[in-house]
Amino acid sequence: MRRQARAKPTVLIVGNPNVGKSVLFHKLTGRYVTVSNYPGTTVEVSRGLMRYRGHEFVIIDSPGMYSLAPITDEERVARRILLSDRPALVLHVIDAKNLARMLPLTAQLIETGAPVVVVLNMMDELERAGLSIQVDALEQQLGVPVLPTVCLSGQGVDAVKELIYERLAAPLADLPARD
């Protein structure tokens, strides 16, 4: 098959520390990973395979970063992955409760020209804080897909998988071109 010759598409998970990157990584790949809620544990980069609908995707979990202009070693590592692996898709995981503090990095990621998808995580905590976000309005403003999730419980993770598949595998499969 043609597909086999091709390298597996790479998906990079980025975001501030403490937003659930590692949890998402774990849910997508089903592998061990150290998940933490303070900045710093993900110093080492985890890579794993996601299998979905007969396709395989490489998922990379990057160390927490606040900005594309790095200050800490972790941010430097995260940016280097973005530079060297040239991922086919960038999942920016953000904490829905702190949208205003998360969006500067979204802006920078979109600026890089990489294909960005925003994973709006911790929707349950947002709700508990007495807030809601209009996802389609946010999508319009940013011009990239926004997927609401609760990674800890797995809610919305299937939609993330489906989108990865649609973006990266569907165009390659021997299906009629979608328009």
């Binding site: 969006l103 500067p104 802006a107 007495g130 807030l131 809601s132 946010l138 403003q141």
Partner: peptide, 21 residues
């Protein structure tokens, strides 16, 4: 500038559903 832009968007798309508990 980035922060201003972010706050603007966040304010536009976020709504209070009920007063914080």
């Amino acid at each position: 500038q980035r922060q201003q832009w972010s706050q603007q968007i966040a304010a536009q798309v976020t709504q209070a559903t009920k007063p914080p508990r």
